[in-house]
Design a protein around this nucleic acid. Structure first.
Length: 109
DNA sequence: CGCAGTCTAGCAC
DNA sequence: GTGCTAGACTGCG
């Protein structure tokens, strides 16, 4: 399992209506390279299709920074906010509303 | 706001 | 193959 695959697998565990952060993904993957996580999302070999609602999709739109702010997205931040909103997550000025309650934790309690 | 730490991918040599 | 740069980040000053 390569670094990227690890990130994608973890990312796929994020349920609809929830979001996670690069930090959490990195820690869950056993690394501190938060930037590398973003890199894996941006350059994921699955392509832009990964951001859809398919079987092997990687919900990269559910990944934001540790402050709840949307940073980048292959389809554009607008699209990212749109997808999140579609899942019931409210976006305000490129920021997750009620971020802490919307955040999904990998580590059990 | 700016700098340093950490990791991968891409391009140059 | 080795080396340097940039990037969807984070934490500290």
């Amino acid at each position: 399992m390569t670094f990227n695959e690890k990130i994608w697998e973890l990312c796929k565990k994020v349920p609809e209506g929830k979001v996670t952060t690069y930090k959490l993904l990195a820690e869950a993957a056993g690394t501190k390279a938060y930037r590398a996580v973003g890199n894996a999302m941006n350059r994921n070999p699955n392509g832009l299709l990964s951001c859809g609602y398919g079987k092997d999709m990687v919900p990269c739109h559910r990944v934001v920074d540790s402050t709840g702010h949307l940073h980048g997205f292959a389809h554009g931040l607008r699209k990212k906010a749109e997808l999140l909103r579609k899942e019931g997550i409210k976006i305000k000025n490129n920021r997750i509303e009620n971020f802490e309650a919307t955040l999904y934790c990998f580590k059990p309690q």
